[in-house]
Amino acid sequence: MSIGAAGPLIALAVVVVVFAALNPQFRTLGNVANILDAAAVLAVVTCGTTFVLLLGSIDLSAAGVMAASSLTVALLVENTRNDADYGVLGILVAVLLGAALGGLSGLLLVLLKVPSFMTTLGVSAVGLGIATLLFAGVQPGVVDAGLRGWATGRFLGFTHLTWIAAACVLVGWVVQRHTRLGRYAMAIGGAEEVLALSGVRVAPYKVAVFTMAGAFYGLGAVMVTSQLGSGVVQAGADYSFSAITAAVVGGTLLVGGRGGVLHSTVGVLLLTVLANGLVLVGVSPYVQGGVQGLIVVVAVAAAAAPLRHRNQVVK
């Protein structure tokens, strides 16, 4: 691993050491579990966003997709609003809805040739609309014990959510490293025109990547719903942006083809540790978003610095 690739990992280590020195509460085992629990949803969402970024595209749809999936799952498992009790099937439907919305972004991108930041912004609005329709003024509380157990149950000291996130990262890594979909996503971000010269049709792979990202957002929404105990329109409010921030900070560049799931996960941990540590040392949680905003700008600028030249066009 080169110095550049190790940067985020070193930053993570430094942040951990600094907070551990500043605050004794930070270095308890319980807090480590807390951090990993807090990082779980973002890690899953970031898995999805990472693949889109590898293409060189961008995905702003997590907020809307997660809203729709959150309401969907809350209304399909045993809940306070209706008689539905589909259990795991309901969770599956919510994930599939996420995948469908993701696929829609991808289809609009390849068919209408509309840039991804616009299609995903549009799809996000559609997802929020679906969520608002499903919400219909009354918040559906989750009764289903299985789903509630995702957030509350523990295995080896860590919440089930943490384990689910770990599994997602593992799956994401395998897809990225060992499947044609993952390798082609890398290649599309690296040199899309070369794939065309080699006779590869890239459109289906792009759609597939967006679909997979949507599925990750769907699962993330289910996890949030379990945490909150009810279906919420705001379930994914800040995740689009946090996921991009985490991925970029971890070394998954916006230009595409660089970084990957493991890089992004380091970014997720870095952001979460930062959030956790800042709260522990007494910084207002409202500042967090702003800190993230600055971090992403600095990270993108730093990544772009070596590639800069004078007559470059940046949109």
């Binding site: 390798r183 890398m186 290649a187 971000g189 690296g190 040199a191 025109e193 070369v194 794939l195 010269l197 080699s198 006779g199 590869v200 083809g257 660089r258």
Partner: peptide
């Protein structure tokens, strides 16, 4: 090709068999 048509971030093996 003069300007080289390889995907830089894949392995040499992947480039050689790319698409087939």
């Amino acid at each position: 090709f003069q300007e080289q048509s390889l995907v830089p971030n894949l392995t040499a093996a992947e480039n050689i068999v790319l698409g087939s």
